[in-house]
Write a protein that binds this DNA or RNA. Structure first.
Lengths: 225, 225
DNA sequence: AAACATTTGTCCGTATGTATA
DNA sequence: ATATACATACGGACAAATGTT
């Protein structure tokens, strides 16, 4: 039986990665709240690893902007402000619009089909009221386009922004509401632009697909809180 | 004698930061070459710190994309390819164009004057053939605009891209040539857009100011190498 | 294939610095 | 102001993994 050439044994998760993913999850879902002080020793014990991997995780979380370390003093979970949503989405819009432009010129029919399928999944999640699944499918749709644009810088930055956007939703809304039928339609417009190999149209459609939820979230939060 | 309220003792540079800045410098200026393997023990000794801060620096460098760590095996300086320049500049263009748009609506007359002064410095550096100073002044001009846009995500991403662009220039050209009179003129156009509070014009002018050097560098490298 | 030599991953002790009584 | 408690920054030792002979 043939064996995959590049098979890598699932690369046992290191203590560092274990710490990182868990703490990150706690921060994003609000278990660790904005402003909360993090103690190496405490997390070390609760995660069953030594302090070193915890410190390593802290450093990565700091780069991601999820914690702030005050050297020699302490490290705290960063705050989240309502106004952040504008900065997050407008930055993501700039990056994704640019990615869509590039993708429009590189995309293949198979890849267009993949987007159509993903948008169908997304539409189903929206209409059947599965907000978490909708959020994930939406993110995947965007991620596919970013990866098509073949730009690792954009991909990295985009991932980082998505994490913050998720946290924002959890912190302010306690749930990931923001996927709507409008978004499904906007995805259709993006796909149409790809089918026409129209980079400018793809840029515009993508921008709209991000600026609209930004405004909606902004409004939602002003009315809720 | 009155003492400044918020005086912070220059925050003794930690061993980690010492290691980070030095290794980063070596990678950017080409002392540590693309693909070169980095040994914790070796750097530990040559920098006079223990392995811990070296490992911490490695992690941050990995996030910045300057090294790649293969867990349990090794960590190497990442490669640089000619095609990267297109990805770097187009991403930077998307971010800075967006930042210019926002800045156009927030900028004050004093801040416009600051840009005029910076551009005069830049013009002088260009005309007096001081390429390193020109590069630094140009970067500062852009940095001021990004900071005006008041978006920490854009600022962080932009810094990261600038580091890679610098490395690219050093690795492929052994020097930071790429500042020209054209760039001075483009800066004038950006400033004019700010004076008119014309966000769309600022966006366009900024984009041109980045796409042109991208093309020029691309061409330069194809002819040189 | 197996033992060896390297190098990394993790743990923990200690020194240094910070806040609080 | 001094002392005390506490948390972090760093170092060094050991364990685990990798590549090599």
């Amino acid at each position: 039986m043939p064996v995959p050439q590049n098979f890598k044994a699932p690369a046992r998760i290191s203590a560092k990665e274990k710490a990182l993913t868990q703490i990150q999850r706690w921060i994003v879902d609000g278990t660790l709240q904005p402003g909360e002080k993090l103690l190496e020793a405490e997390l070390s014990e609760s995660l069953g690893v030594s302090r070193t991997p915890i410190r390593e995780a802290f450093q990565l979380l700091e780069v991601q902007g999820l914690v702030a370390t005050y050297p020699g003093k302490e490290t705290k979970v960063t705050g989240v402000e309502k106004g952040d949503i504008l900065k997050l989405y407008s930055t993501l819009a700039a990056l994704h619009a640019s990615a869509a432009e590039v993708a429009a010129e590189l995309i293949s029919p198979q890849q267009i089909q993949r987007l159509i399928d993903l948008n169908a999944e997304f539409a189903h999640a929206v209409s059947s009221d599965q907000p978490y699944l909708a959020m994930e499918t939406d993110e995947e749709f965007h991620k596919v386009i970013v990866e098509l644009s073949n730009n690792p810088y954009t991909a990295t930055f985009s991932d980082s922004l998505q994490v913050h956007i998720r946290r924002f939703k959890y912190v302010f809304l306690q749930q990931p509401i923001d996927s709507t039928q409008a978004s499904v339609d906007e995805h259709v417009a993006i796909i149409a632009a790809f089918q026409n190999r129209d980079a400018a149209a793809a840029h515009e459609a993508m921008k709209k697909n991000l600026i609209r939820p930004m405004r909606e979230l902004e409004h939602l939060i002003d009315t809720f809180n």
